[in-house]
Design a protein around this nucleic acid. Sequence first.
DNA 1: CCGATCGGTCAACGCTTGTTGGCCTACGCT
DNA 2: AGCGTAGGCCAACAAGCGTTGACCGATCGG
Lengths: 186, 186
Amino acid sequence: MTTARRSDTTRAAILEAARERFAADGYERATIRAIARDAGIDPSMVMRYYGNKEGLFAAASEIDLALPTLGALPSKHIGAVLVNHFLDRWERDDVLTGLLRVGVTNEAGAARMQAIFGAQLGPVTLGVCPRPEEAPARAALVASQILGMALARYVLRLPPAVEMSRDEVVAWLAPTVQRYLTAETP
Amino acid sequence: MTTARRSDTTRAAILEAARERFAADGYERATIRAIARDAGIDPSMVMRYYGNKEGLFAAASEIDLALPTLGALPSKHIGAVLVNHFLDRWERDDVLTGLLRVGVTNEAGAARMQAIFGAQLGPVTLGVCPRPEEAPARAALVASQILGMALARYVLRLPPAVEMSRDEVVAWLAPTVQRYLTAETP
DNA sequence: CCGATCGGTCAACGCTTGTTGGCCTACGCT
DNA sequence: AGCGTAGGCCAACAAGCGTTGACCGATCGG
């Protein structure tokens, strides 16, 4: 184990400020200077600890979706469980919002999004869908609906999407996700 | 009617270059200089004709979704018709891609997206959904699925979403959209 | 045929950005 | 106590940005 460095609190402050700025502004408008100001330190410290802006984003966008293993629970409910889990994840912190905002205009951000959803959502679908070779496509369909709702609700803030209650969102999306995962191919 | 000006071809060249750049790079990285270079003219012309960068984006992102009136056709098929129409719209030019890329990081872009989907998709749903007061929410649900697929397929380019054939996309999404529009509230 | 207007270029402005290197301070080990 | 090193600040850099205003040639109506 690596011993705790004296600078760990500063590193953490930078990371927290970076996540907020990336989530609020996207890649280009989240300037290193603004992030440093939020963290209460000099911009050059960001460079020292994370190399450059790309490195900072890479560190700030690390995330574990912590998806539940769906195999264990009644297969009728996996849609609702998954939608609920993603809404939780989206509202707990702003890493996912940042990832989405950056992924849309930045090549590296898009690659990271691909990697995260491929590596974390892929295996989960593999466990519950009828034919294993369809798992990637089904995962992409689920991702499209989840990301689409996140886009409308948390990023574009389309008024009707914002005003829907969480239960309404779950009630509408759960059957969709359920079908994408378990239905026979149409 | 306004008579044709001599500079119309230049104006059109600027607009075309702007649409491509906004679609490819988003708002910040689509620089006026790059757009002018693409259009083969001086950056100051862009300012002369469109005032400033915001004005250029406003002009470049004007779009008529040309949604079909769904009332006239068998209500079983409106999901498929709508999904097909949006895929067409998305692939014909890159205005929608630009709108999405800009809307995610730019306040004015988000507002424009809200306006377009509210004003153009809203009325269409009003015509086909059971209870009129639910129309905005249903429109937002449809938008979330359509935008989510566009995001995955045309912007983030998640490999499985790109590799799906157009018919597969329609086959999977049409029932979802159909349900969002016409099903009883769950 | 001449002058006004239009389409266009050029050079510069003020500002912000990511990034660098030098310098100072204060902690922690021996 | 003393020294090395880690943590931090400051000032500056080159480049790129949106935007401006002066200038020039062609076009065209009277």
